Simulated assay, not measured.
Amino acid sequence: MSKKESTSRTLLVALAVSLVSSVFVAGAAVSLKPVQIENRQLDKQRSILAIAGLGEASMSSREIKDLFSSRIKARVVDLETGEYTDAYDPNVFDPLKAAKDPKLSEALAGEQDIALIKRRERFTTVYMVEQDGRLDSLILPVRGYGLWSTLHGFVAVKSDLNTVVGLGFYQHAETPGLGGEVDNPKWKALWPGKTLFDEQGKPAIRIVKGGVDPANPEATHQVDALAGATLTSNGVDKLLQFWLGEQGFGPFLAKLRTQGV
Rank of each mutant, 00 (worst) to 15 (best):
Q45S: 04
T125I: 08
Q131L: 14
A115G: 04
E83P: 00
L108S: 06
K44V: 13
N91K: 07
E63W: 05
R122A: 02
A107P: 02
D113W: 02
R120C: 12
T124W: 06
T85K: 08
Q112R: 11
F68Y: 15
A74V: 14
G53N: 12
Y84C: 00
G55D: 13
L116V: 09
K103E: 12
R119N: 11
D86E: 14
V92Q: 11
P90C: 07
P102E: 09
V77E: 07
S58C: 07
P90H: 04
T85R: 05
V77A: 06
G53T: 13
I64G: 02
V77Q: 04
A99D: 07
A50I: 05
I114T: 03
V129F: 01
D113I: 03
Q45H: 08
G110P: 01
A99T: 03
S70P: 03
A57M: 07
A115D: 02
V126N: 04
S61Q: 06
V126H: 05
E121H: 03
E63L: 11
L79W: 04
D66F: 07
I72S: 00
D94A: 10
T125W: 03
K103H: 05
G110F: 15
A109H: 13
E111V: 11
I51W: 05
V126E: 05
T85Q: 12
I72R: 01
G82I: 12
E130F: 15
E63M: 11
